[in-house]
């Protein structure tokens, strides 16, 4: 499987290089796109002071983690966001007929080029805006990979609903985007019942907020709690997908094929 993932990365890159100019424009465009938010926060913090414990530097940490984690997911596990389409158009067949672990095979087989822009942006922003101690760099790298894993689990969870209730593509992409939106604001601004949702159904807290706070003030017990939460999320998504496979209709159900 490891060799296969390497090949997927290499061939995806090679395919992207068939349209080199488009690749460069997309990567730079996405990085520039994200940079706009630096100005937003700069202008905002110029006017107001600290926001529930978050200053400019802390928000930049939050942002760099969100961008890098999201970018990592889009680049290396990029097929997740197309899962509904793969399910209802019957394209899962191809993956089901291959003798490798199904979920990694699906997720890794596509790369979304603009994700490179997010990934590069996140890493550069981290390098420029944060203190570079070995511990921070280590925690940032680990959090990045974990965030990508959770983003993929969110995709897997919501897109698996397509097995059960017809095309869930819109719902899934809305959920994915909502988590990303929440993740780019300090978690401390949210109060009450909404924070429950952000720890469960739209787990921006697990993906970005708690890791950010752990980088800022590391605590082992909190880190273990986080890992347990991550485990539950990954397992839930996995089980939902596995259960859905039994109902897989290989393009026969939707009546979309004319």
């Amino acid at each position: 499987m490891r060799g296969l993932i390497g090949k997927y990365i290499r061939f995806n890159l090679a395919a992207a290089m068939e349209y080199r100019v488009s690749f460069v424009i997309q990567v730079l465009g996405m990085a520039l796109n994200n940079s706009a938010f630096i100005f937003f926060w700069l202008l905002l913090f110029d006017k107001v002071g600290d926001i529930n414990g978050y200053g400019f530097t802390e928000v930049m940490l939050l942002w760099s983690l969100a961008a890098a984690g999201f970018g990592f997911n889009e680049v290396f596990l990029g097929n997740g966001r197309y899962l509904s389409r793969i399910i209802y158009q019957g394209e899962l067949d191809v993956y089901l007929l291959q003798p490798v672990p199904l979920i990694p095979n699906i997720l890794c087989s596509r790369m979304n080029v603009s994700g490179w822009g997010d990934l590069a942006y996140g890493i550069i922003l981290f390098l420029l805006s944060q203190e570079l101690t070995p511990l921070w760099i280590f925690l940032f790298a680990v959090s990045c990979v974990l965030a990508a894993l959770l983003f993929s689990s969110i995709n897997l969870f919501y897109h698996s609903l397509t097995f059960y209730m017809g095309n869930g593509e819109n719902l899934a992409s809305a959920a994915y985007n909502m988590v990303l939106t929440f993740a780019t604001y300090p978690g401390t601004i949210f109060k009450g019942a909404s924070t429950w949702i952000m720890h469960t159904l739209l787990p921006a807290a697990l993906v970005i907020w708690i890791p950010t706070e752990l980088i800022l003030h590391f605590s082992l017990s909190r880190a273990l709690f986080l890992l347990a939460g991550d485990g539950i999320l990954v397992a839930t998504a996995y089980l939902l997908f596995k259960g859905g496979l039994r109902r897989y209709a290989s393009g026969n159900r939707m009546g979309t094929r004319l």
């Binding site: 349209y19 100019v21 488009s22 424009i25 997309q26 730079l28 465009g29 996405m30 520039l32 796109n33 940079s35 706009a36 100005f39 937003f40 202008l43 905002l44 006017k47």
Partner: peptide
């Protein structure tokens, strides 16, 4: 080949300079 990045940039100019995320008075 691909105009999407131009759209992103336009959109972000509206976000910030156009005052979409907060009033220009700020």
């Amino acid at each position: 080949e691909d105009v999407t990045p131009f759209y992103w940039i336009f959109q972000k100019l509206i976000f910030i300079l156009g005052g979409m995320f907060f009033p220009i008075d700020f």
